[in-house]
Design a protein around this nucleic acid. Structure first.
Length: 487
RNA sequence: GCGUGGGUAGCUCAGCGGUAGAGCAGUUGGCUUUUAACCAAUUGGUCCUGGGUUCGAUCCCCAGCCCACGCACCA
C-alpha cells in the first residue's frame, strides 16, 4: 500500500465519499448473500422474456437518460443489460443507482426479463442491492487494458476489460476438465505425488530449492512427477495420470514460465506408439469440442488469420535422424564434429563452442525442424543420450523408443516406452549424474528392483497445448498469473 | 546475462529544448427504451527514478528500475 501522507487523488476521494454516504444512509456497501437465479452471460444467452430473475454482477456500463437508466452487469460469463425507471423503483433507489453507484461496483438486481425496442435482452429492475463498492475506477471501457504489465500483474483488470482474455481462460478451464474426463473415461486414475522432493528427478532442469525446518533438510520443488508416478506403477496402479504444476529454475520466455502445468500419464503394458495414438485422439477430441474442428486458426487482434494448424489424422511420424538428414544433408551423421559445426554456420544455425556431437544435431533439430513444424509431427527414434528414462530400441541401441510430438513450432508432448530394467536404468542415471553432477534417486531405483511393469508414458505441456488450441502467442496469455520480476 | 523498443492523466494514446494535449472514465447541468447513448460545460499530471548538459529538460546525455520482443540458457 502507498503512504497516506499524499492526499488521495480526486477520483479515489469521490468514490470514498460515495461509500461514506451509503453507510450514512444505512446501506451496506459490501453486500452479503444474494441468491441469484442466473449468471449475467447465461441469462443473456438463454434468454426468455417475462421471467422473474435475480442476477448479480459488476456494473461495466451505465447509460443515464434522465429518469431512466440502462446499465450492464457483467462477470466472467458475460453481460446482461438492466433497465431502471425512476417512477417504478422510487426516488431512493434511483438516487442510489445514479449518484452513489459507480461503474465498477457489484450489484444484485431482481426483476422481470423483457426485450427493449432495440432488441436487447434486459432485466426490468425492481430491487437493487450493492454487493461491493469499488474504490478505484475501471480501465477504458472500449480499449480495455493493453499494457502488458498491468494485464499480468493485475489480471483481474484484464479479465474485467478484455473479452479475449476472458474467453481464453474459460476455455482453458474447460479444456483441463475435458482432459481429466477423457482419461477417466479410459480407466485412468488421477493421483497426486509430491511437489516437494528430496531428489529432483524425471527431467534435467535446474530446480528451485527450499528448506524444510522440521526435518532440517534441503528440499526441491519438483521438475517432474515422473519418478513418483513410476513408483505407483510398481505399486499396481496400472493406469494413472497426474495433472499439476512443475517448477523449473530457468529463463522466462514467450514459451517458458518457471511454474507450468504438466500432464503425465502412465499405462502399464502399453508402449510409446499406443501412447502416441492416445495423445492424437485426445488432442483431436479437444479441438473438435472447443475449436469446432481439426483446422485451428490463429488470429491477430484484428481478426486476421495468421496461422492455420491442420490436426487431421493420421499425424505424420518420422525418425529423428531422417528429419535431420532432410534439412542438413544425407551425410550429416558421417561428418566430424568440426564439419557439423561448419555446416551449421552454412545453415544459419548458431552453435556454442562447448557443444558435443549430439547437441549440435539437437540444435539443428530445434532450429530447422521443431520451430518450423506447425502441423503435428511425431518425431521418433530419438538418440538415447537425450532420453535416459526410456527403453532403448531393440534393433538400434543408440536410439530410444519414444516420440516427441511437435505442434505449433513447440514441443507439446513426449511419449516413451518406459525403461523398467532396474540395472540398465541405474547405469543410465549414473552416467547422466556423472555428466551433470546430479544426484541419483536411490529410492526410485529401489522401487524398480521390485518390478515396474512395462508401460507407455506421456507428458503433455498443458500451457503449450492451450496456446496451440486458443492461438495465444505467449505462455503468459494462458497462465493467469505469469511470473514477473518484483516491482 | 546481451541486444532492440517502450514507460506521458484512472485507462487508451498523441506530442516536444521554452514548462503538457485528445478520447474514454470522473464532476456539473439537460434528457423516460439506450447500448462506444447523446448535448453542453468542466476537473484531473512526480511526463518511471536519480544524476548531467543547458538560461531553461518530459524531450538531449549517463546510470538505474520495470515491461515487451529477440538472443543466450532450457530433456
Amino acid at each position: 500500500m502507498q503512504g497516506q501522507e499524499h492526499s488521495e487523488s480526486e477520483l479515489l476521494q469521490i468514490r470514498r465519499d460515495k461509500l461514506n454516504t451509503m453507510v450514512a444512509r444505512g446501506i451496506d456497501p459490501f453486500g452479503g448473500r444474494f441468491d441469484t437465479t442466473h449468471q449475467p452471460g447465461a441469462l443473456r444467452r438463454d434468454f426468455q422474456p417475462d421471467l422473474e430473475v435475480k442476477v448479480a454482477g459488476r456494473v461495466t456500463a451505465r447509460r443515464t437518460m434522465g429518469k431512466a437508466v440502462f446499465f450492464d452487469l457483467s462477470d466472467i460469463t458475460g453481460r446482461i443489460q438492466c433497465y431502471v425507471n425512476k417512477k417504478e423503483i422510487g426516488d431512493e433507489a434511483f438516487e442510489l443507482l445514479t449518484e452513489l453507484v459507480d461503474i465498477g461496483d457489484w450489484l444484485g438486481v431482481s426483476g422481470k426479463t423483457f426485450v427493449t425496442k432495440t432488441g436487447e435482452p434486459s432485466v426490468h429492475t425492481e430491487t437493487l442491492q450493492v454487493m461491493s463498492k469499488a474504490l478505484r475506477p475501471l480501465p477504458d471501457k472500449w480499449h480495455g487494458v493493453t499494457d502488458r504489465e498491468i494485464k499480468y500483474r493485475q489480471r483481474y483488470l484484464d479479465l474485467i476489460s478484455n473479452e479475449r482474455s476472458r474467453d481464453t481462460f474459460v476455455q482453458r478451464s474447460l479444456m483441463v476438465a475435458e482432459i481429466r474426463r477423457f482419461l477417466q473415461d479410459r480407466g485412468f486414475l488421477e493421483v497426486e505425488t509430491p511437489m516437494m522432493q528430496d531428489v529432483p528427478g524425471g527431467a534435467a532442469a535446474t530446480p528451485f530449492e527450499t528448506f524444510f525446518k522440521a526435518l532440517n533438510m534441503a528440499m526441491y520443488l519438483r521438475i517432474a512427477p515422473e519418478l513418483f508416478l513410476k513408483r505407483l506403477l510398481v505399486g499396481g496402479f496400472t493406469k494413472i495420470f497426474e495433472l499439476n504444476r512443475n517448477f523449473r529454475n530457468e529463463g522466462l520466455s514467450r514459451r517458458h514460465n518457471p511454474e507450468f502445468t504438466m500432464l503425465e500419464a502412465y499405462w502399464a503394458f502399453s508402449d510409446f506408439e499406443q501412447m502416441a495414438d492416445l495423445v492424437e485422439s485426445m488432442v483431436c477430441h479437444l479441438a473438435e469440442k472447443f475449436c469446432g474442428g481439426l483446422l485451428i486458426e490463429h488470429k491477430d487482434d484484428e481478426g486476421n488469420v495468421t496461422r492455420t494448424i491442420n490436426l487431421q489424422r493420421p499425424w505424420r511420424r518420422a525418425p529423428y535422424k531422417e528429419l535431420i538428414k532432410g534439412v542438413a544433408g544425407e551425410g550429416w551423421f558421417e561428418l566430424s564434429l568440426e564439419d557439423k559445426k561448419a555446416k551449421c554456420a552454412e545453415l544459419g544455425v548458431e552453435v556454442s563452442a562447448g557443444m558435443v556431437d549430439y547437441e549440435v544435431s539437437q540444435q539443428v533439430f530445434e532450429k530447422l525442424i521443431e520451430e518450423k513444424s506447425f502441423d503435428p509431427l511425431f518425431v521418433t527414434h530419438v538418440p538415447a543420450e537425450l532420453v535416459p528414462l526410456a527403453k532403448q530400441n531393440k534393433a538400434d541401441g543408440s536410439v530410444v523408443d519414444v516420440y516427441e510430438l511437435v505442434i505449433n513450432g513447440q514441443e507439446i508432448s513426449p511419449g516413451y516406452s518406459e525403461l523398467n530394467d532396474p540395472i540398465v536404468q541405474r547405469e543410465r542415471l549414473e552416467h547422466q549424474a556423472g555428466e551433470e553432477t546430479q544426484k541419483v534417486d536411490e529410492e526410485f531405483l529401489l522401487a524398480l528392483e521390485y518390478g515396474m511393469p512395462s508401460a507407455g508414458g506421456i507428458g503433455i505441456g498443458i500451457d503449450r497445448l492451450v496456446m496451440m488450441l486458443t492461438g495465444a502467442e505467449s505462455i503468459r496469455d494462458v497462465v493467469l498469473f505469469p511470473q514477473l520480476k518484483k516491482r
